[in-house]
């Protein structure tokens, strides 16, 4: 009976583990040149960061987490890790590149041009993403 219990525990652990390692790291993005050199037209001030926070908490938080660590409540069900926005690697991207990743999207990262229709809101989110920098 004891071995059976241990067997069940190991089986559960294995199943659980196999689900966690299924989430793969994102492959590198192919960002069009026009976005790479695109400049952020919105000043990175308190007002725009606050606006960006509102948009982030509404549209992004559920996957990317409150602090941008990729640990939101829906993140575990994604096939791809949503990324750690506090990392130096992420913050090294230019604003235009972040804009493409955030608003245009690909695969599991949806397009937000319709859901965040205001250009000002779109760039405000980018300014808010900068506050995650460690």
């Amino acid at each position: 009976m004891k071995t059976f219990k241990i067997f069940i525990l190991v089986a559960i652990a294995l199943v659980g583990f196999s689900f966690t390692i299924q989430q793969k790291k994102a492959t590198p993005w192919e960002i069009p040149a026009e976005y790479k050199k695109m400049e952020n037209p919105l000043a990175n001030d308190k007002a725009s960061v606050n606006k960006g926070k509102m948009v982030y908490m509404k549209h992004c938080r559920s996957c990317h987490g409150n602090k941008g660590l990729g640990d939101g409540p829906k993140a575990a069900r994604l096939k791809t890790f949503p990324g750690d926005f506090s990392s130096a690697e992420f913050q090294a991207h230019g604003d235009g590149e972040l804009f493409y990743k955030s608003i245009i999207g690909r695969d599991e990262m949806p397009n937000y041009e319709k859901k965040i229709p205001s250009k000002k809101d779109q760039w405000a989110v980018i300014n808010y993403l900068r506050t995650f920098k460690k």
Partner: peptide, 28 residues
């Protein structure tokens, strides 16, 4: 700035607020 003539976003969260309609409509 260049956003001056942009429409404002999120006047209301949805087209319905308690018992009344609001100016918000769904996206196309």
């Amino acid at each position: 700035d260049e956003f001056a003539n942009e429409p404002v976003s999120g006047t209301f969260e949805s087209g319905l607020l308690a018992e009344t309609q609001t100016v918000a409509t769904p996206f196309a």
